[in-house]
Write a protein that binds this DNA or RNA. Sequence first.
RNA 1: GGCGAUGUGGCCGAGUGGUUAGGCAACGGUCUGCAAAACCGUCCACAGCAGUUCGAUUCUGCUCGUCGCCUCCA
Length: 471
Amino acid sequence: MQFFNTLTRQQEEFVPMEPGKVKLYTCGPTVHDFAHIGNFRTYVFEDLLRRYLRYRGYQVTQVMNLTDVEDKIIRKSIAAGVHFKEYTKPYIEAFFEDLKRLNIQPAEHYPRATEHVDGMVEMIRDLLQKGIAYRSEDGSIYYNITKFPSYGQLAHICVSELVSGARVAQDEYEKDSACDFALWKAWDEADGHVYWDQYEDLGKGRPGWHIECSAMSRAILGDSFDIHCGGVDNIFPHHQNEIAQSEAFSGKKFVNYWLHSEHLQVESYKMSKSKGNFITLRDLLDPQGNPSRRAYDPMVIRFSLLSASYGSRMNFKYEGLQQDEKALERIVALLRRAQEQTAGESVDDLVEKTRAEFIRHMDNNLLITEALAALFNFVTDVNKRMDAGPINGQKVVEFWNEIDEVLGLNLKEKLQTGPLDEDIEKLIEERQAARKAKNFARSDEIRNQLLAQGIVLEDTPQGVRWKRSSP
RNA sequence: GGCGAUGUGGCCGAGUGGUUAGGCAACGGUCUGCAAAACCGUCCACAGCAGUUCGAUUCUGCUCGUCGCCUCCA
């Protein structure tokens, strides 16, 4: 299995620190608002990674942090006149609801920044003691990046150039260098009720943003772990700062593989509130929430986010969502058809060939487009075989359930169409009778009537098949 | 403004100095009472402009678009 490692800018063979086990840290949300679909692109990518690692036999320990104290949260909670923990609560709940709707597997740990302040303080004290951190005039504590020789390596940034090119005036800061970053921010009036004052040596204040990930990953995964993920915007400075803090503290290599997902754009432009193209998952699930005025199946959204390779920018379009919906239906139609065939020609050869291709491509830095292509070729091949005669359809369903452990599209659920109302059953029977009597006017009338109720009828040589239409 | 990415047919994408990548969607055909599903077929791209070369999507230069980082951000 190979991954593209941001640290080396190369695709590398994945070797875990401990055979058969993977320690994975994924940067989670800052819970000041509803997460948008760009955020979920990253979380879906991380979920795919996690599921695929498990599929390949690894035992995965995943940590996803929740940033529940930072500048925006403080500002918004004070503006709303509520305690910041009260302010973040509904967004935390919404986040977990959204994860569930997208069928993202729960991580093993969801630490919150506010629960790990002790751990952050321990690291800050150590860095102060080593002379890597310093206290500024206003009482804040900063990390001196010149004490970390490889600073800038992750982003391939030359620090001296960066400082001179920065568009923020250096004299706005209390720190020695524009790139030094806060470990501990001294309290000021704008922080209102948000402060920690039990650490007398640090003074009344709150932790800087970057230190939380260093402290939380250390607390749960240890000083070193295998994979760290996040969006590309985190490469610099956030992840670079994590490396600087953690490695200066422990003296060990922090992370072996850095995997970053590229951003999602909406209709070719950056998503932003001012442009009015800012989309949350909730907007897509609610017909009134988006310009195409319809609700989308969350699994279609998942498939859409999943089907573009994580390393390139994704262009999100409503039209694409409709196309992906059709593509998914093609798979579901195959399964529905195969499910009806219990005995017949073997499909083992197709299953084995497809599985091998799926693994070969997913092993190649999660090359999902090729992996999906192999699966769609499987759909065609199985359909052809079914056209020729009965097959062992159970094997097809079993294989898709296996693959769905990785894709997480809940295809199994789509097959459980559920019992129909009695009067609908009667209408279907009546239609069958009408067709037999060649009363096609009545037959089409019934079909249209049911379609209006969301029931799609298909006449097949084996009899009538029905399914529910998409939302 | 500084630094850095990226641009392949409607969409996702592999890849190469010269031979149709592939998948999805769309459209057409077959089948069907009509549909649906399925199958078959069609769609010959490489941002633009120069240059190198017998030949460039692939190499070089310039231009344009989009994006990222430099301040919080998946």
